[in-house]
């Protein structure tokens, strides 16, 4: 059984932090703040060989790497997984920030981008249609990657779900134009991706009737069974497997708090 704190760190690092790319892609005005940037911001758990990642700006273009960088501009170093998890789930944490003094303007400019991730928190309920659409998109991307990372991190329920499964695609889609996200499973391996999976027909597709329906279900304002009854959510494919996946999603939700 994997360490629950480390597993949550893995999920938050791999599924949440990359969503800064989505924030920038969706808000051009905000992205303009980082135009021309050539900087690297790193997050790491001290003395943990695996739990580190960095966000690299190259001429303002942001990319995410699940690895350590040899020379980051800013480096957030957490004493353990618990501290990182606390910061990412709305709690208090005091990481050591390498570059805080010498590169203060970079840190000050970066923090607003990081704060945009709080849209994922259950307490954040955007009022505007744009805000709700962004929350739906980021939540779908988060869920699929989190499920994959649960598997890669050795969560026993997710491993049991994936280990004997043949090559199958689980697709989430919001009508009429997206967003879309998918999870591929094949005999113990998983991969999460964005968009519509084009290489084969999904085994299960969860179709939300529109953005508002997706928002209500993904934020648990409407129960999934009720949503299916009201045609806000249509599950195309085997309901049994959809239910299993739903249970693991609830497990992630409980972990994130």
């Amino acid at each position: 059984m994997p360490d629950r704190d480390r597993l949550l760190t893995r999920i938050l690092m791999r599924a949440s932090l990359p969503l800064m790319k989505t924030v920038l892609a969706e808000d051009e005005k905000f992205a303009a703040r980082y135009r021309g940037w050539n900087k690297v911001v790193q997050f790491e758990i001290r003395d943990d060989a695996e739990l580190a990642c960095h966000l690299a700006f190259e001429d303002g273009q942001l990319s995410y790497k699940p690895t350590r960088h040899p020379d980051p501009t800013i480096n957030f170093i957490f004493k353990d997984s618990k501290a990182f998890n606390a910061m990412m789930t709305g709690g208090v944490a005091f990481p050591k920030i390498k570059g805080m003094i010498s590169r203060l303007p970079t840190l000050v400019s970066f923090l607003p981008l990081m704060l945009r991730l709080t849209i994922l928190l259950p307490t954040k309920v955007p009022k505007t249609a744009e805000g709700r659409a962004l929350k739906v998109k980021m939540t779908l991307y988060f869920i699929t990657t989190a499920l994959s990372q649960m598997n890669k991190g050795g969560d026993e329920d997710m491993r049991a779900f994936t280990e004997k499964m043949p090559d199958r695609i689980f697709q989430w889609t919001v009508k009429p134009d997206g967003p879309h996200a998918w999870l591929r499973v094949k005999r113990g391996k998983t991969k999460a991706g964005k968009g519509l999976y084009a290489r084969r027909r999904p085994f299960i597709t969860m179709v939300f009737s529109d953005t508002e329906a997706a928002f209500q279900v993904l934020t648990s304002q409407v129960d999934m069974v009720e949503a299916i009854k009201d045609n806000k959510l249509v599950v195309e494919g085997s309901p049994e497997y959809g239910k299993d996946l739903g249970n693991i999603m609830k497990k992630i939700e409980a972990m994130v708090g």
């Binding site: 790497k65 090559d167 991969k191 991706g193 290489r199």
Partner: peptide, 11 residues
């Protein structure tokens, strides 16, 4: 399927 054997999530 050789082309499908990249299991890194799309970040």
């Amino acid at each position: 399927l050789e082309a499908d054997e990249d299991w890194e999530d799309e970040f």
